[in-house]
Design a binder for these strands. Structure first.
Lengths: 351, 351
DNA sequence: TTGTAGGCGTTATCAA
DNA sequence: TTGATAACGCCTACAA
């Protein structure tokens, strides 16, 4: 039954235990062995009685170690971001760090604000999954020795590690699958690349891979923010022309898969006859129509890798080894949305 | 171009600006007016040059205000939790607080650990959406004056505000809708209530409301963690009996809606003929089959309300006003999964 | 308008 | 094995 109205301090515990701040500090600082059994007991009892917890603020101030990892997220409601965050959180917990999150709702101003805040709390490392115009603040952080790791996108200017999908390979997997399934024309849908390097990488690989796979088709960029109409226009524009060969839609991320599925559903387009596949696996992909084929990203692994990366840099004495890239493979989950009805299959098999 | 390898301190800025710590402190502490224009300029220049940012750790230590809000989440990948978190984050940002999150993956041990950590960082308030066996640590926090707000569940022991859905009303809305749609037997599916008060509230209201609506049916609890088999067993057990009257399934939350939908889908059960509806709106509910009827929770509002609640208590001088309950109404989104095929409709309309 | 001198709760250094 | 004491970076009387 603690009587204290306020959180106890190390000094109070010391008094209560009839000893000095130093010993209490040692007790909680992982140097218990240096204390006599008896003193340990007294400190433990006093601390328990007072409900004492070392103040991380004070600790951080003294040692310069905040034990905080910051994470900047462009959209906290994006399942991909959350999934990665889950991995990040796991790794932090496992390594004794806490996670300070900043959600920017895709607003550069908020991004700067959050960056400043995270810096103010002296986060020891920063995981970034945000638009990130090569920011002044970001560069400064890196300069001052805060390790940065970018998830799913890289920033040319700032020295930072990158963790994410092997985008080129993923696009190849998609094209392989679509081609093997009998589709001959592929429409690739992406959000505008802007600074997001992974979007650029996927786009570039698609353009390159189309010919290599003997496929026709094209890539189109569209902003989901502009409402469902934008998606509809693009898709309709392409699907309107008579289908002489089997056609498929390839979505560059989960958001697009959702938007496209909504549109197709609303127009009663039969999934499979028009192929549909997307990068990012989502809860519902197996539930819609015949199921939607996806390329699943190992999000937990990506999140954990991001943190491991940070901590490694924190612990390593090397001031600035060159940026590292960690790439993970996507996992293909084939479903009905890329299964052609029988008559189409036949027409493909005869050369 | 800052030269410093280390983050600058207030003292360095003071020196660089040819002034004292105090003035620099005032400059950044929102007392610029008290400084001469000229001094302001010098400080601004020096600070910019050195890339100075006040150290929140030191600030928090001195003033006792960490400017941190903690949030404890049982499952960070649960869309409901994330949606609430989005609201929480928005409100924090708007009020100049940062968010320290702890994800427990439904593990009570992790919950305690996180609670201790959040306490160590001296969070000024705590938003909790977790299992929360009335924890020793939690009680202590409340005792020491940290305001607590529980989202979607209440803990008998600990004094805390509660923000969440008007559960009784929501169940009524569901039963009203199902009844009006022509269903006469309702199977209510819930996760085990345990300490989660909102589950208990919904369950109790369902049992009470069934008769009041002239419906037959029953409520069943099942653990999703036990795999899809558990869900299947319960549903099959009920649906196996010959359907003499139109039957519907009512899911107590989004997780269950997902699990149930998976099962029904796998068995080709026609949605609508067997009614399906759930609490929690999810991205994909409009996409599956004829669409799944849901009761949407105003998650953003709930998250924001949680923070407002905390800050109000922080700012109010009252030591301990009685716990407050804030309840929000659900919004019914009717879809095909609760639309009976025509012949059923007819049979219902003749008494 | 500006500056000086503690002290917030910890850890690190040094001495006993 | 223990304890006094000086930082850590900042804010806040108080004084000039």
């Amino acid at each position: 039954m603690p009587q204290s109205r306020q959180r106890a301090t190390i000094l109070e515990v010391a008094h209560a235990a009839g000893t000095s701040k130093t010993s209490v500090s040692r007790y909680f600082g992982g140097e218990r062995e240096r204390l006599s059994r008896e003193l340990q007991g007294r400190i433990a009892a006093a601390a328990r009685r007072l409900g004492y917890r070392p103040n991380q603020m004070a600790r951080g101030l003294k040692g310069g170690r905040s034990r905080l990892i910051g994470m900047l997220v462009a959209d906290i409601r994006n399942p991909y971001s959350v999934a990665v965050m889950h991995g990040v959180e796991q790794a932090c917990r496992a390594r004794g760090y806490s996670l300070l999150v900043g959600n920017t709702d895709n607003d550069p101003a908020q991004e700067r604000r959050h960056l400043a805040l995270l810096a103010a709390y002296r986060v020891e490392g920063l995981v970034i999954n945000a638009a990130g115009s090569p920011d002044r603040e970001l560069a400064r952080l890196a300069e001052q020795g805060t390790p940065l790791v970018l998830v799913d996108r890289e920033l040319g200017e700032v020295p930072a590690d990158v963790v994410g999908l092997d985008n080129a390979r993923a696009i190849d997997q998609a094209l392989d699958h679509l081609q093997a399934a009998g589709y001959r024309e592929v429409l690739y849908l992406s959000e505008p690349p802007d600074q997001a390097s992974s979007r650029r990488a996927r786009l570039a690989r698609f353009r390159h891979g189309l010919a290599a796979h003997g496929l026709s088709g094209e890539a189109r960029c569209l902003s989901i923010g502009h409402g469902p109409a934008a998606v509809g226009e693009v898709i309709d524009g392409v699907l309107a022309s008579p289908a002489t060969i089997p056609r498929a839609l390839l979505c560059a991320n989960g958001n697009l898969t959702l938007a496209v599925t909504r549109h197709l559903q609303a127009h009663g387009t039969p999934l499979g006859e028009v192929g549909l596949m997307g990068i990012d696996e989502l809860d519902w992909c197996e539930l819609v129509g015949p199921g939607i084929t996806t390329l699943a990203q190992p999000t937990d692994a990506i999140g954990r890798a991001a943190v491991e990366n940070l901590l490694q840099r924190l612990e390593s004495p090397q001031p600035a080894s060159p940026p590292r890239r960690t790439r993970y493979q996507a996992q293909l989950i084939p479903r009905g949305s890329t299964r052609l009805p029988f008559h189409h299959d036949r027409s493909q098999e005869s050369p």
